[in-house]
Design a protein around this nucleic acid. Structure first.
Lengths: 467, 467
DNA sequence: GGGTATTTGTCCGTATGTATG
DNA sequence: TCATACATACGGACAAATACC
């Protein structure tokens, strides 16, 4: 315990008394916990640049008043004071109250959850240990601002083979999560741009753009994704799209529409497409479509990806692939930003990928999610006459739309009464006009066991069908 | 190896040929490394949703043309192709060239370096292992956006006792480095503010502010730090200051000036002080002064700190303490941002602090840096008649100003000729008028052994005194 | 796991400035 | 004017407990 006592040597008050008063207050206000050790007289004296006997006198005073105890050869320790206990209890009461507010659900179909039970802990631990074991001092020094080159190469290789992305490691920028990367990107694109977004869309990205002062224009989608006429009409320079699996609608943009998007981008010199390749790792039906980035021959696509869904949310690593013209702009405008991901973590991830664990993990998760996905679909079969289903070919959630006029709010409320949490689509609209008419809810299944999925479906049937 | 082949079933080109062409190109361009295994015909067929015989035909073609080899029961493997070696060599040549550009120095007095040899690897490794060992699935789920509460409490306790900062954990925001936190902060303060900065100053912060569209106004310092008349005249709303140890000048702002700064802040309703408590951990002379934040009774100081210097740059953890009024603004405007620091890393750091290792480490580093500091000062003693020294009471570097008219450029150049790298002060000025007249250089010593410091000093003496 | 270096409270001698008689 | 007492501040010596390798 180091102590920062503000000492005024000009003051009339003796030094030892200033120290004594400060520590006494800290103890009384609970800032110094009972039982914690104070710095030794020597250390305190050295820190505060006073004589040892000064600190000694301060301690003697505290000792005689019972604030602290002395143990020879061990140190001075703070005593328990009754009055402070009351304050502490008040604080914990506030905390308990906060937790109480949350409703308890039997089954939570959160679309954000991911299956953590299947996380390869042992592998991660092993790699982590090995990374630190060769006392690799390099690991603790400042690294590449763009991210470790080796990791960028590994990501580039993966993106190429799995997603058809074409890029060199120099185009890849690694950062702590997609939100941060969007912040960075928004600095590159210029101030106060017009950005077209699908509606509904990924709200976090919307918030980032708004907060950076950009003008966000919601663009309606048809069943193939963002409508081009509306995009053209929006007069936006930048379009943020999720072609592989639109969030939250689950729409997969077909090749034809992608080509149209690209030619839209080519028609303006300042136009860019931001491709958020959300949830592309998991699809259950239909042919895989390579990333938009791989189809782009004009350097207009910014590709964004993350390991949050495919590995774990706590692994805060995302990446973006900049087209060539933006790379030099990045160097100039944001190249000085230190990497936001710990070098050690980058190394662990690098090993995880290059040793083949990532792919194995993905394959395993695909099988697991497929199982849950099928369980959910069969569980919801009986709802068919009343609901239409959407987005069931990919990702980690499906959409249910009530066909007989029940509103989203009613659906969520009825489900909640039955102990099931489902999520309204309206949260994802960025245009307030739309969200009132919604009668669609999202059901995520990643974080649930097949058993829970079944149970949830049964409860939902009761809640929504019996009237 | 997963392969993403863009397949067009409408095309005249047979499917197997599309696959064959794609893989062939990948091999020729080196995107598929020699020796790497291709997915089996079954897996490929499943991935691409084509028949197995289609993938089989594609592979047969590649096989017959010598691009791949088949090993029964093991798989298909990419052959070595000579032409691609050339491309690879070119790439590595570019890399080598880059490194060549750097002049090789015998001694590098970098002001950014820190001593990594003394990093407690064993402890870090142990904590890291323990964090992962109890298969704590929680650790891999998404955590608190502000940072883990436990860590925030630990940081709050430390800041209070060591720096005199008064705050609750709710005021602390943890993020991946100070630059990121400044980005976040700049969103809270409003668009296009006027920010006063000391001149010279920490260039990274300057760049962040400029990039966010703020107007940065350089304010001159006297020997006590930022001059208040000039600050007042600047009409800025926000002042970014480093009172504990101004970078790079090393000026320690006395209490009187701090009070003046605070009352400046109180005189305007929108005024804020950003206190970057840079290098506050290390000081060698004079009484410690508590952080500005601890003196602030009006909620106008934003305190910023980092573990980059005190632990290791690769540990990308920084924090800021917001005054109460900004906390609610943060919740509203930036609360949705996920934490940029991995939860696991936060837990490791939490253990490191609460188990007392952080303090022990700091004490140890203080002693080590004191030794290096003294070695440098005694090594530079003979330069005294020609140079004045600055900033030698704190931090990890000192300033040398030539008194007989040698310019900074000459000093750097002469030193470089002798194999010693020193750093010109002009890099830190944000006002271009100032930096021409500089005859001051920075000498950092954190990353050097005492032996190297001695050697560097001897070389500098030769370089600068003999003429 | 065992031995050494460091840290610790305690005790003690000293120096300085001020008030008192 | 001088002697004394007291409060404050400084630093060394010692044995035991602890930390570190």
């Amino acid at each position: 315990m180091e102590l920062m006592v503000p000492i005024d040597s000009q003051s009339d008050c003796p030094l030892y008394e200033q120290i004594y008063e400060y520590i006494k207050n800290d103890i009384r206000k609970g800032r110094l916990e009972a039982g914690s050790r104070l710095p030794s007289t020597r250390v305190l004296a050295q820190n505060l640049k006073v004589s040892r006997s000064t600190s000694q006198m301060a301690y003697d005073q505290l000792l005689s008043e019972g604030y602290i105890e002395a143990f020879p050869c061990r140190g001075y320790f703070v005593c328990k004071i009754d009055e402070l206990l009351e304050v502490k209890q008040k604080e914990t009461a506030v905390f308990a109250q906060k937790k109480e507010e949350e409703r308890s659900y039997q089954v939570d179909f959160s679309p954000r959850g991911i299956d953590l039970d299947s996380f390869p802990f042992n592998t991660w631990r092993k790699i982590s240990r090995n990374t630190l074991v060769d006392d690799n001092k390099e690991m603790f020094a400042a690294g590449d601002t763009q991210g470790e080159r080796a990791l960028r190469m590994a990501i580039g290789d993966y993106l190429h083979s799995a997603r058809g992305v074409n890029c060199s490691p120099e185009q890849i920028i690694i950062g702590a999560g997609n939100e941060y990367l969007l912040l960075l990107l928004s600095r590159l694109l210029g101030r106060e741009m017009s950005i077209a977004m699908e509606n509904p869309t990924y709200k976090q990205a919307y918030r980032v753009f708004c907060g950076q002062g950009h003008k966000v224009i919601p663009v309606k989608m048809d069943k193939y994704g963002m409508e081009l006429k509306r995009l053209e009409a929006s007069r936006a320079d930048i379009a943020y799209v999720m072609p592989s699996h639109q969030y939250p609608t689950g729409i997969v943009m077909p090749v034809a529409r992608r080509q149209e998007l690209l030619s839209w981008a080519y028609r303006g010199s300042r136009r860019y497409l931001i491709e958020d390749d959300y949830d592309s790792e998991f699809r259950y039906k239909g042919k895989p479509i390579p990333a938009l980035q791989g189809m782009d021959m004009g350097g207009r696509v910014i590709y964004m990806g993350t390991f949050s869904n495919s590995i774990a949310p706590a692994i805060r690593v995302g990446f973006m692939v900049l087209p060539e013209p933006l790379v030099s702009l990045y160097r100039e405008k944001a190249g000085f930003f230190s990497s936001t991901v710990s070098r050690i973590d980058q190394h662990i991830l690098y090993q995880f990928i290059t040793q083949g664990y990532y792919e194995r993990h993905l394959n395993r998760m695909r099988a697991i999610y497929k199982g849950k996905h099928d369980a959910l679909l069969s569980g919801l079969k009986e709802l068919e006459p009343f609901f239409s289903m959407g987005g069931e070919y990919a990702g980690l959630h499906v959409l249910l739309t009530h066909l007989k006029g029940m509103t989203e709010k009613q659906l969520v409320e009825k489900a909640a009464e039955a102990g099931v949490k489902v999520y309204g689509m309206s949260d994802y609209f960025i245009d307030t006009k739309e969200n009132k008419s919604s009668s669609t809810v999202l059901l995520g299944y990643a974080n649930l066991s097949e058993k829970d999925i079944d149970r949830g479906c049964r409860l939902l049937k009761k809640a929504w069908l019996q009237q």
